[in-house]
């Protein structure tokens, strides 16, 4: 206290000056319109700046709290996520039309287990017979074909993928219509082999291959892959096909339900 008085006494002149200047300043901004508005503009900007700076500083001290809260919130969100819950619903959409009759329904499913490095590769999806999945249904994904259902349980299904030496599917060239049989040699997960292409077929590298309807398995026109290279094999052409489906990154697939399957099977079986 003593030092304070000593300080005031020592610097009384300068302190008096500042007091008088502050009084003047207050008078100016209170009784002069142009200065008042000028001061208002500046002080508003200053207050805004000050507020943003203090907010930044105080925010930092709340980070830990915010972090903890976010972690809790995250855990809750994980619990609500699809992968935490079993989906009983069958989200197939049916188009009602008199001219076109719905032939295929698509049941979305998530891939739970996947393998690509065996000779016989299978994937497991989270939909089973409870959702209407049956043996021999086709499975596709947005980029191409995936495989065929070989076994179902109540909630899960086992799918034999294209990457299985037992898998065979009839495909055709999208532009020329020639068809061949696609199988997998068991080596490269990106490449499959297309065999039994007639010698008079005009093929070139990069030709697109799609499914055809001969097999009674896939809907017609689903993307399979593109021709990587081809060579003559006895009386046929054979081609290496670059599969359009990336089996390493399978996530969601659609199980194709053919509503006319039984009808066609009965007809073909009766023949």
């Amino acid at each position: 206290m003593k030092e304070l008085f000593a300080f005031i006494e020592k610097h009384s002149f300068i302190l008096l000056f500042f007091v008088l200047q502050i009084i003047s300043f207050i008078l100016i901004v209170n009784f002069n319109e142009p200065q008042k508005s000028q001061y208002g503009a500046v002080s508003t900007a200053f207050q805004g700046k000050l507020h943003s700076v203090t907010h930044k500083i105080t925010q930092y001290f709340y980070l830990e709290f915010a972090n903890r809260r976010l972690v809790e919130e995250n855990a809750k969100l994980y619990e609500n996520q699809e992968f935490s819950q079993y989906d009983n619903a069958v989200n197939s959409s049916v188009v009602e039309d008199t001219e076109y009759e719905q032939q295929y329904e698509y049941i979305p499913a998530k891939v739970l287990n996947n393998s690509i490095n065996k000779i016989q590769n299978f994937i497991v999806i989270n939909k089973g017979w409870k959702q209407g999945i049956q043996k021999n249904m086709a499975v596709i994904c947005p980029t191409g074909i995936v495989g065929v259902v070989v076994r179902t349980s109540q909630h899960y299904s086992l799918i034999m993928t294209v990457l299985n030496t037992n898998f065979k599917v009839s495909t055709r060239f999208k532009n020329s219509g020639f068809y061949g049989s696609l199988s997998w040699s068991g080596q490269n997960y990106k490449l499959a082999t297309l065999e039994e292409i007639p010698l008079h077929a005009v093929i070139k590298n990069g030709d697109t291959l799609v499914t055809n309807s001969y097999s009674n398995l896939f809907p017609s026109g689903i993307m399979v892959g593109t021709v990587e290279s081809f060579y003559q094999n006895d009386n046929f052409f054979s081609a290496d096909v670059l599969l359009s489906t990336d089996f390493k990154r399978l996530d969601y697939v659609y199980v194709v339900k053919d509503l006319f399957k039984k009808e066609r099977q009965n007809l073909e079986g009766a023949e």
């Binding site: 008088l20 100016i28 209170n30």
Partner: peptide
């Protein structure tokens, strides 16, 4: 001249 504070401020500045 109805300019409260303006001359007072200038004068104190000069006096200091």
């Amino acid at each position: 001249i109805n300019s409260l504070g303006v001359h007072a401020s200038a004068m104190t500045m000069m006096a200091v």
